[in-house]
Design a protein around this nucleic acid. Sequence first.
DNA 1: TTATTTAACTATCATTTTTATAGTTGCAAA
DNA 2: TTTGCAACTATAAAAATGATAGTTAAATAA
Lengths: 110, 110
Amino acid sequence: MLKFNGNEYPCCASLTMGIIGGKWKTVILFHLMNEKLRYNELRKSMPTVTERTLSLQLKALEEDGLIKRKVYTSKPPLKVEYSLTDFGKTLIPLIQSIADWGDLVVENYS
Amino acid sequence: MLKFNGNEYPCCASLTMGIIGGKWKTVILFHLMNEKLRYNELRKSMPTVTERTLSLQLKALEEDGLIKRKVYTSKPPLKVEYSLTDFGKTLIPLIQSIADWGDLVVENYS
DNA sequence: TTATTTAACTATCATTTTTATAGTTGCAAA
DNA sequence: TTTGCAACTATAAAAATGATAGTTAAATAA
């Protein structure tokens, strides 16, 4: 059994998927790979996720130390920017490979 | 919008995660990466998944053309072997990267 | 001989995750 | 003056996953 951030996983693949698995986390990381983005910018680049889920997934990624949330104004309308942490940046090659395999499928298997 | 096997995805990363995302699919593929395995062998290598979920995930992977199911005896006790298809084999480098990142986390961040 | 075990599942019900839809708060623009 | 915006939260429903038990016919153990 492997452990990370209070959770247990039966193998290394399962640990990775516990952190970036689910339907949307990888998509969020993909969009943050090359730039910081505000909440609404993320939302516009992911038109089919609901706001509640986006919000929950951002919190989970922050909790696991992959992204950081920076608030610029304390009173509404807030300005909030999300970006990868150094730890999150270790995922960049993997996220890129995930995106590349998706491209390959679109080009060759559909 | 990208399409694969009847589903639509907003980006290439989301397409990949639609196919290998979720809690268990990648773990199954990881165990099938280098060998064919019978149902119970898979189950023993994934001690924390329930049989129902394992069964459903195997069907989903088969449905997406990543694995094939071969039955050797027609009457109980059945002998069934699961293995990667050629299409599934295109995922091997990605699965390996996923496993490697999990190892890296265990070694350096826990 | 009888009982237990095995393999590959399926059934039923409970819990967790994700979705759908609507609402909140102050400021800014029309 | 009304409308819209940014970054969410609230509530309820649907989908995914988990817990537990049951099925079948043969093989094996007592």
